[in-house]
Design a protein around this nucleic acid. Structure first.
Lengths: 152, 152
DNA sequence: CCGAGTCGGTCTCAAAATGGAACCGAAAGG
DNA sequence: CCTTTCGGTTCCATTTTGAGACCGACTCGG
């Protein structure tokens, strides 16, 4: 099996990974969330080669995660997050929580504050029924409708 | 700047990405969470080449995300998640929530149920002070102690 | 109009990462 | 013994990548 074939799997972890899970894509999106919009700005802040960057941006646009459009003023292009793109934020925040815990010996480099509040954003895995916090150990996988399509 | 230099950035999103953010690593971990432990089992279920797999497993062990040990019975080796590894679960669940929303037209392929409960696990970005749910738009970044080290 | 600068984007090529498959030694089981 | 299975290594052809030169379109000052 080659790598791209994982995109056909009936798994909602694998499918996003095939789109987002390479060295650069999530880094590009991180910069998008930080306000970067222009091709040259991505290129210089990331250190990715221009052709790679083009390739990745195209793919993100193709998947409706970014939109490419002319800036309001100035004739340059801009890459901006769509709603679908904005919804990737929890993934980055989950990475950050883990990074703050295990890879930030001097404490968090950046606080992600709730604006107009003293609190901070944190990802929490919880049960949508009983509202209890959960960990990997509390989860039991079970076949859902997206698999039933196969007639299993 | 080459890719690996991103590991030196003072950013708790970037640092984990340098370790976890390649094509295979998160897929390997997904299989770990699904109970896969043996070298050959990873190799055949993932379709990764054996040398790549070895390389990735070594790196995960090096970072304390997996441990390698002899199985209780049988003399074969096992790769198991450490606590640090188990804490990566929310990242996968965040990817899943996004995948279920945008890449699962027939509904979720798999339910991740709270065992002994009818509910399902979901990732929620919330403010640790006022407990309100948050989105990317509600967040204001602010310098934290891990950056103050630089004397800025 | 001219020429310099900036923009997003493409092309080329050497270097690095990857996939595939053969190969290895150790252990298990007959 | 012999065979199978295990984790793991080595090899090489193919693919992906990084680096930087290059391109045409546009802007702005003169």
């Amino acid at each position: 099996m080659r790598y791209e074939e994982h995109a056909d799997e009936f798994c909602s972890i694998t499918r996003p990974l095939v789109v987002l899970g390479d060295r650069w894509t999530l880094l590009i999106l991180k910069h998008s969330f930080a306000g970067v919009r222009r091709f040259n700005a991505f290129a210089s802040s990331l250190g990715i080669s221009r052709s790679r960057l083009q390739n990745r941006l195209d793919r993100l646009v193709e998947h409706g995660i970014l939109v490419k459009q002319k800036a309001d003023q100035g004739a340059h292009e801009e890459y901006r997050l769509t709603e679908k793109g904005l919804d990737i934020y929890p993934v980055l925040m989950a990475l950050r929580d883990w990074g703050d815990t295990y890879m930030a010996p001097d404490g968090p480099p950046v606080h992600y504050r709730h604006h107009d509040c003293t609190g901070e954003a944190h990802v929490r895995l919880e049960c949508d029924h009983c509202r209890q916090p959960m960990t990997a150990r509390d989860v039991t996988p079970e076949v859902g409708p997206g698999l039933a399509v196969l007639g299993l």
